[in-house]
Structures are given as C-alpha cells and as structure tokens.
Amino acid sequence: MSATGDAQATAKDLEVTEIKLKHIEEAKKAKKRFVLWVSLVWVGIFAFLLIIFNQFNLDFRFMLKYLPFIMKGVGTTIYVSLLSIISACVLALFGALGRLSKNPIFYGIATFYISIIRGTPLIVQIFVIYLGLPQMGIVISAVPAGIIALGVNYGAYMTEIFRAGIQSIGRGQIEAAHSLGMTYAQMMKRVVLPQALRLIIPPTGNEFIAMLKDSALVNFLGVWELFFRAIKVGRQNFKNMETLIIAGLFYWMVTIIFQYFQSRLENRLSKGTRQVSGMTH
C-alpha cells in the first residue's frame, strides 16, 4: 500500500509543481507585457510632444549650436543642489531635534525657523540673503548665497521628514539606551539616528530631485547654472523657446539619472531590513 501511496503522492507533487511553474511563467509574461505597454505609452506621448513642439517653428540648427554652451550649466546645477541638500540635512536635523525638544528655547528657535521659512517664498529668501547680508558687511558671492538660501529653505521643509524619522523609533529603544546609562546625545547618535536614517533617506532623495529644479531660481543672482545659460543665449538671439526646451531636457535627464540611483538606494535599504528582520533562524 505504501509503495502505491508514495507513487500517487509523487504524481500529485509533480502536478502541483507544474501548476506552480505555470503560474510563475504566466506572471513573468504578464509583467513583460506590462513593461512593453508602458514603454509604448511613453514613446507615444513623447512623439506627440515632439509634434507639438514642431509647431513652435523651432530652429534646430540653433539648438544644436548652443547645446554645449547650455550643457556647461549642468555641473553648476548639480553642484549647487548637492551642497544645498547637505546644508538642508544639517539644518533639518537640528530643526527636528529642536521641534522634539522640551526646552522652550530650542523649541522656540526651531518652530520660528520653520514658520518663517515656510511662510515666505523661496525667491524672496534668495534675494534677502543675497542682498541683505552685504548690508550687514558680510559680502557674499552669488553661488554661496544661493546655496545658503536653498539650504535654509529646504532645511525647514525637511525638518518634518527628520522629525517623523526620529519619532518612528520606539520608546523601548530610547529606554534601553537610557537604562544602559547613555546620555541624550549618545542615545541619539548610537541608537535613534542610525535607525531613523532608513526612513529619512528615501524622502530626502525626493527633496534632492525637487531641489535640482528649484536651483534654477539662483539664476536671478547671476549664477551660471543651466537655466541662466539658457535664458542668456535665448534672449541674445530671440530664441527663448529653443534654449528653454534644451534646459528642460537637461533637467529631465539629470532627474531620471538621480531617480535611478535613488530607487537603487531604496532597494538596498529595504533589502537590509529584509535581511535583518525576515527569517527567524
């Protein structure tokens, strides 16, 4: 009986495996079909846009000629954005600690900072910093002024990201750190922030991508970044549309590239969690 039973069991197992394989195969095909359709939609819309742009009577030879000149601004744009996001992160960290502080002075400073920055336009802040600091005898050139303005502005918004990340760490972790005798600073540095970072990094990547485009505003200070260069040659030749489209395409490309890196980073972070949490043995 057992021999036939085993044989039956094996036959059944085989059948089950086959069904499973079939399902996996179908799922793969469906995914491929999905990707194919998405690509088609993208190409379709892009072609449609090209047709519309063609109605603008664009001077393509002019565009090709000035493409390298505008492209030189990409480096400045990325450089300004990178330094700005780093300053923003530092400010956001202190802003978040202040927001969470029971000390009225720290709490007051943090909330005032967030309120005034979120309550005024970025372009106003850029000019106030660039034109205001020299009045106080602090002469500052355009690039650092732009970086300070963008950093201060984004820092205020990102305070919420940092605060949420810090608050997501459970009370138990903080109590464990305290019961070992850690000070507030040791607890933050060793226990809370390393864990909060996992939650802080993905939205910070988003902020960086937004920053790449908001950095166009520093053109008003005369920083030779992407937008400034596009406007400059556009005005000189009365071909604003051409140069703006070039600048737009560059912003888009840089964004796509950083988005790619960001999704890779996010994958790695979530893999880390899976590796650490997942299995029990």
Binding site: S179, V191, Q195, V276
Partner: peptide, 19 residues
Amino acid sequence: IEIRTHMGMVFQDFNLFPH
C-alpha cells in the same frame, strides 16, 4: 547616569538594538 549604570534593566519586549 551613575545610578543607571549600577542597575541593569531587562524589558518585556527585549529592546535590543536591531541595527
């Protein structure tokens, strides 16, 4: 801090540092 270092504490839900 001094008092805490003289006294170990074990919690219901362990509170090990997961990272």
